[in-house]
């Protein structure tokens, strides 16, 4: 009797812990930056692998064939640093290395550098096929009239 109760209890307790653990892992981490695209881009979500390929300038077309236009903030900009680390899960110096290789071997081009989140918002709103990133709150406040939407990374 006791034995069977113990047996019954153990999996239940374990499964509870599993649920909590799974919820913790699955709930999207609170990030300050998110990728945003021009509203002309039909997609709402993207894989990390593809997002990295876009920001390292290896993937140049959306799945529908339209050209991708990449905007970034300067290397030392805090928003750029945290987007690189938290969203792309790499480091600014790694992105820079990829771009330098393309640019100085003739096998690709560098992304277009904008000076501020404000300019990023303007460029993303006005450039078809464009992708960039913005602080989450910034895009909420300043982005009411902007024709951009967030990309969910999965």
């Amino acid at each position: 009797m006791t034995e069977s109760r113990t047996r019954a209890f153990l999996p239940t307790a374990l499964s509870r812990w599993w649920i909590i653990l799974a919820l913790t892992l699955l709930s999207s981490p609170i990030r300050a930056q998110e990728p945003f695209v021009n509203n002309g881009v039909a997609y709402r979500e993207i894989s990390l692998t593809s997002l990295r390929a876009i920001f390292t300038m290896h993937l140049r077309q959306w799945p529908d064939g339209k050209p991708i236009k990449v905007f970034v903030l300067p290397d030392q900009n805090d928003v750029h640093i945290s987007f690189s680390k938290e969203v792309l899960k790499t480091f600014p110096y790694q992105l820079k290395r990829s771009w330098d290789l393309l640019v100085f071997s003739g096998s690709g081009q560098a992304p277009t550098v904008v000076e501020s989140p404000k300019e990023m918002l303007q460029k993303l709103s006005s450039t078809p096929g464009s992708i960039g990133y913005l602080p989450k709150d910034y895009s909420k406040e300043g982005g009411k009239n902007a024709s951009i939407h967030m990309l969910e990374v999965n």
Binding site: R60, Q61, P67, I68, V103, F104, G106, S107, Q109
Partner: peptide
């Protein structure tokens, strides 16, 4: 250096 990418698949 100069690069010209008239199409996404041509440079």
């Amino acid at each position: 250096n100069l690069s010209w990418q008239p199409l996404p698949y041509l440079q």
